[in-house]
Amino acid sequence: MSQTIPVEQLKSLTMSIYRYDPSVDEKPYMQDIVIEVPTDKDIMVLDALHLAKDQEPSLSYRRSCREGVCGSDGMNINGKNGLACVTPLSEVVKRNKLTIRPMPGLPVVRDLIVDMKQFFDQLEKVKPYLITNSDNPEIERTQSPEEREELDGLYECILCGCCSTSCPSFWWNPDKFLGPAALLQSWRFIADSRDEATEERLDALEDSFSLYRCHGIMNCVSVCPKGLNPTEAISNIRNKLINREK
């Protein structure tokens, strides 16, 4: 990008980026990389990372769709989790500096890439798929527009991990507390009029950790790049648990 823009329309930006390659580095360090960004238009943090990678090809991060729908590039941008590809520099650069770290709470594989295993293990525990016992009809199952509307704000989750890795309860108990992303998915299926396993799903959450470790801190809500509300989903499950007949 920098080659095609006249010099007078560029300004320098210092990116401070978390670097760690366990096969080379004894310990992680922060590396300053100065990039040239356009003055007349906003670019995304991901574009800035590409410019940094042009200088330092060994810099590693995940990316795919570059439009906020695949969930690859969740990272910690100036202290807050977000997706690099839909976060404009104008929103996050402070005093001409941009600090990028991996999402907190999960083991770092290399640079900005974290090991998502615990995150996905917790997701699988909620059986994130439709469960039915009745026979499938010849055509689709019917669902009213109102019933379908119950899934809005739930099915859009992109599994980026921004929420769970900003949640102190998940940091403490990533193996026992399911975390906001998994619980949002749990509610997505409980709320689905077509699902026939509500009781089974609720039973699996009846312990002191899986769900009840949520303390309503709401970091998940404030960081979700899709504007979803896991805290609300958790409280919906909580109500369902309290109100069901034993």
């Binding site: 439709l130 039915t132 055509i139 689709e140 689905d192 077509r194």
Partner: peptide, 23 residues
């Protein structure tokens, strides 16, 4: 096609719906 699409619905794909409850 119709068979393949209905299968997706049976798997849980959250299609938008008509007033009649169809896809």
């Amino acid at each position: 096609g119709p068979k393949a699409v209905f299968e997706l619905e049976h798997m849980g794909l959250p299609f938008s719906r008509t007033e009649e409850g169809r896809i």
